[in-house]
Amino acid sequence: MNVLMPSPRLVRAALPALSLAALLVAIWFVQPRAISYFGFNLMLNLAMPIAFATIAQLCVITVNDLDLSIGAFVSFVACVGATWLNATPLLGVAVLLGAVVVYALVGALIHLRNLPSIVVTLGMSFFWLGCSVLLLPSPGGSAPAWLAALVKVRTPLVPFAILVSAALALVVHVGLMRSAWGAILRGAGGNPVAVARAGWSLLRTKVTMFALAGFFGVLSGLSLVGLTTSADANIAIRYTLLSIAGVILGGGEFVGGRVSPVGAVLGAMTLTLAGSLLSFLRISPDWQIGAQGAILIVVLALRALVNRLERRR
C-alpha cells in the first residue's frame, strides 16, 4: 500500500504489522527467553507451510473465490512427499505437477460453468482426502532426506523460516501488486466486466490464479513434510481455515480483489505465534482454536472501526 495515502488507509495497511508486533510484545512479556534466534526458530517452525498455504488462498481470494480444499490438498502433497517423492522421485514430481494442473482445471470449471467456488472446492477437498487415504492409509512414510535438510537449514542471524517468509512476501508482492500482469489479475477481482470489456480473458486469469494456488499449495505441503518428516492424510486439514484467516487478517477482503501479500504473510505468522503465546499461557490446545478465533475477531473489529472512521471523514 502506498505510504502517501490518507491516514485511515495507512492504518489499515499497518494493522497486520501492528497485530504481529502486539503479539510479539505479549510473548516477550510472558516468556522473554522466547525472543531469541532459538526461540523464533522453534516458534516459527511451522510458519513456513502456513505462509505458503495462505498465499495459495490469497491467489484464489483475489479473483473473488474461496478455496475450501487447500488443507486437504496440502495434506495430499505431504503424503506424496512422504511416499512417492522419496521412493520414486520421478513419479512423485509428475504427480505433483499433475495436481497443479488439476487445480488449474478446477479454476476453469468454476469459470466456465459459473459454479460457486465454495461448492466445487468443498467437493475437491474430499477428493484430495480420498487420494491421501489411498496413498497413506495410516500415518507414516518418510520425507526425502534432501527436503528435510533443506527446510531445517540454519541460517546466520535470522531463522530460515523468517527469511523464506520475507522472500515469499516480496516475490508475490512484486508479482501481484507491482507487475503489469498483476494489475490485470487483481482487476479481474475488482470489476470482472470491465476487465472483460477491455478485451482480457477472464478464463485465463482464473486459471492462472488457481494454478498459482496449486503451486503454492505444493510448496506448503513439501515444506510441511520436510519439517515433520512423516505425513498423514489429515496432517494439514486445519490449514483451510488458517489460510483464510491469514488472508483476512492481513488486510484482504473476500470480494473485490483487495488483497495484500505482505499482510497475508504477516497474518500467517501472527496466527502461528498466537499458538505459541497460548501455550506459554498454559492454555490447553483444545482451547487454542477458539482463542485464535478470538484474535481474529479483535483484529477484524479494529479494521471495521478504521473503515467506519474513514467513511465518517
Binding site: R186, G187, G190, V193, A194, R197, G256, G257
Partner: peptide, 11 residues
Amino acid sequence: SLCPNLTVAEN
C-alpha cells in the same frame, strides 16, 4: 467500468 481496487494508473 473502472476496477475500484486498482489505482488510476493500473486502470
